[in-house]
Design a protein around this nucleic acid. Sequence first.
DNA 1: AACACGGGGAC
DNA 2: GTCCCAGTGTT
Length: 373
Amino acid sequence: MARPSRRRPTPPAPPRRAWTRAKPAALRAPLLAWYREHHRKLPWRAEPGKLANPYHEWLSEAMLQQTQVATVIAYFERFTAAFPTLADLARAEEQSVLRLWQGLGYYRRARNLHAAARAVEANHAGRLPDTFEGLLALPGIGRYSAGAIASIAFGRRTPVVDGNVARVLARWFAIEEPVDAPAVRERLWRLAEHLVPARHPGDFNQAVMELGALVCTPKSPKCLVCPVAAACRANKMGIAERLPVRVPRRKPTAAEHHVLAIDRRGERLFVQRPDRGLWSGMWEMPTVEAVAAGVDAVEALRALAAARGIMIDKPARVGEFDHQTTHRSIHFVVWRARCTGGRLRGGAWRRPGKIDDLPLPNPQRRALEMLEE
DNA sequence: AACACGGGGAC
DNA sequence: GTCCCAGTGTT
């Protein structure tokens, strides 16, 4: 059976050119006035009219990718306590950076951040580049983050388009095409470029995002208190509630992972995940992610241990639970076995209570809790 | 252009 | 449950 298309079945909408007649002045002044009055105080944010600390701004942008402000705050505080400056971060081991990122997800962000810090130390005399192009060249900094850092920390007139900005612009200009379609995305960038002012571009960009977070929310937008409702086409048309349109997500695929706690003289085996893919660079108890057809899970676990050079007795089933990521629904089955001999290739033995140096993904932590009971 | 990459807040 | 979050890099 063919996978249903994710595209909207409706025919192309007629050309809509309202957005090309954007009048920046009608939006900027009331929006900035609203921002000065209603912005949230955030650990990385400067007062309106002032530039942010570039390192703090950069770190916050990395943490905020696909992650809500409320989730990030505690991570940001712990991270800056451990690494107060860019130089501190550059000197750190990647493992300790991942430790501080543990639980936040999208772990490649942490590894890119660390690699970029080292690149800045090596190639830019320890100073974060202060231009869009210079920032864009660093790992983990894309079009959005480069624009955000350049405007918010360095006062450059660079636009940003994130999820908030896309939603706000879709409503202001009544854009009825899916905002995640690349062609529409490109229009949004041109629109943002048109709107961002030369004076206080960082405040303007933050104001649009803040409006999206506090007023122009995905559901039940608060148009009655919106400072720019008078200039909003979707509000005039009464369609703010159903904008923006997005392409439907694909459903997560199902998987079953078997986690094996291998114990030997009070210590447990942990191994590091590969450089790429899911939970890359994080540690885990040896895990079978796909049991081949016709093979018993117990046999697969024995083979897993054998691949590491060790022998185990018969694994005993400890428990199970479900774990969700954006693209996978994973049923975890937790097992326990004793190491009966052999010589370990790769991995580390740790007392279960002393694993603080190993960054673990959330489901591995959950499996560990299950093993303690 | 499509896809993978985590986890959780808000409803 | 669903939606989506201050996106980026790879294929």
